[in-house]
Design a protein around this nucleic acid. Sequence first.
DNA 1: TTGTAGGCGTTATCAC
DNA 2: GTGATAACGCCTACAA
Lengths: 338, 338
Amino acid sequence: MKKVTIKDVAKEAEVSPSTVSRVISDSPNISKSTKDKVRFIMDEMGYYPNAIARSLVKQKTRSIGLVMSRPTDRALANPFFSGVIQGIAAVAQEKNYSLLLTAADNYEDEYQEALKQLKVGRVDGLVLLASRINDDLIKQLLKNNYPFVLIGRSQEYQSIPRVDNDNYKAAYDLIIKLIQSGYKEFSILAGHKDYVFTGDRLKGVIDALKENDLSLDPDRIEFTDFTFESAEKSAYRILSNHNTDALIAFDDLLGMAAVQTAESLGFSVPDQIGIVGFNDHTLVSYLKPSLTTVKIPIVDMGERAISMLIKMLENTSYNGEEKIIPTEIIERESLKFK
Amino acid sequence: MKKVTIKDVAKEAEVSPSTVSRVISDSPNISKSTKDKVRFIMDEMGYYPNAIARSLVKQKTRSIGLVMSRPTDRALANPFFSGVIQGIAAVAQEKNYSLLLTAADNYEDEYQEALKQLKVGRVDGLVLLASRINDDLIKQLLKNNYPFVLIGRSQEYQSIPRVDNDNYKAAYDLIIKLIQSGYKEFSILAGHKDYVFTGDRLKGVIDALKENDLSLDPDRIEFTDFTFESAEKSAYRILSNHNTDALIAFDDLLGMAAVQTAESLGFSVPDQIGIVGFNDHTLVSYLKPSLTTVKIPIVDMGERAISMLIKMLENTSYNGEEKIIPTEIIERESLKFK
DNA sequence: TTGTAGGCGTTATCAC
DNA sequence: GTGATAACGCCTACAA
């Protein structure tokens, strides 16, 4: 079954290829009659304009690369990424863009792969998820003037196109509210050190404490990978060494691990120890106890990020902006505000 | 910063474009000296061969479409898909293929979108995940002779390229083992009716029971969506109406909901009610109680599926095959075998 | 309103 | 070994 091309249609409809092309793009200067005729022939022959050829002449692919800034497998295991991709996919589909998933074994390669997709012209732009500190990829993108939108924040580069929540403020507000509720002994189950949001949230925590003449013993901060094992170990170290009445986990998965660790150590949650997570992954409202958390509207962030990128792509005078999405504290069972 | 093309390189290196092209493809009939010279110029100029142009002349895109057979958002929320995609992405990257994510609001559109990607020549083939019963997409693909591999099973079409686990056998073996362990009162928390594997597993269950002169009251089978709410309701209906000592959930998420429902109804798990899941999602080994489950090697299945597809793409005489991956029962806390 | 011609960036076929 | 030349399938001036 050979592919039918624009020439085949043209011949069959007894017009020139350019006329067919005009029908495809629904050009106004073309008679209704030929338009109808050509359209009829097109679907009679099962013709579909070749996207590759179109991309070549238009110098646009209408596809967008997705970079996950960490090994794809682990990234996908995290609900955070699923959420973002949901948002991205929805808008992409609506605006008729394709999504190209970039995969690699490690962060270094991933970044090279993503850049390559741009260089070989396979994608028009990139959406970057949860960038690390010290991001070379961003440097390269800026240098080459490649369109991209970052979900998160770059340590080095100010005012680049991005959508984010204010992690500093989210953490700050949370601590204030906890202090007002009477909590006194804080410990932090932080995410990976390399992620920008980890530092931001930490800063928010510390500043809020400081303003209330409280301080945080560095031993009470545990950095951990996003695996259950690692989180459990960290939670164990905190809970067995430090008297804690409020444990703040920088991700719901970590929070979930913390709850289990606390309970297995004989603490009752939330009565003896209150535990808060971050993100509001769908699952955690169903846990027992359900997780009190700082909700981050990840799907929404994905939607905004790709919308911004598409706008940049289609409107050369628009160069993106910084969009900060508000967060929200959701009280459930694992920590009670008073 | 204008894109540098093969012509620019040719001019700079004082050779013809064809020579440069030969250097790119590392052709043997070309002198080492010019090869070196051209290579030098290429990266001096920052040249990358345009993938789109290449695709056009080669009539191959080296990219593969991913279809998820259900609304993308819900699909991504399920760890099953993340697992499969992990496997797919790893191999794709290794073999230098790109992955195109197909998104849509509903199943109908998704299938149209996927087909379109093929028709417009944006992808060379498709990997289909968890196909529904009565699959028109497969019919279309076969009719048009488009390359694809199905992860799962089609009700209508025998012997199509696919990788799957033997759901019938997995369920059958599980029941046999349960019966041997002394379980007598079975209830089933099945997935969505439309999925082929639901039917297959159900059949396995029923046949195993029948062989042991047991039968299953249809009321003891609850079909449910893959959401926590829906699963909890179904579990509630089962547990409040039927004396059950072994509850089989066709997905770990459903199993997890069942555990919680059972406990909230005052049953102790596994002492009064044993609960098994399917899939072995990473999370469930960390629950309390941890979930006994039938492990399905989803990452592995993803890897094999895309490997098969790529082989089909690159070797015209190979038309795919059926690969059945074995499953494994993993005993944890939510159900004990005796 | 329609057709002709040239080009998008490559590769492949022939020559030399 | 290397260089013209003609595709690949489409779009877009420019003409008519």
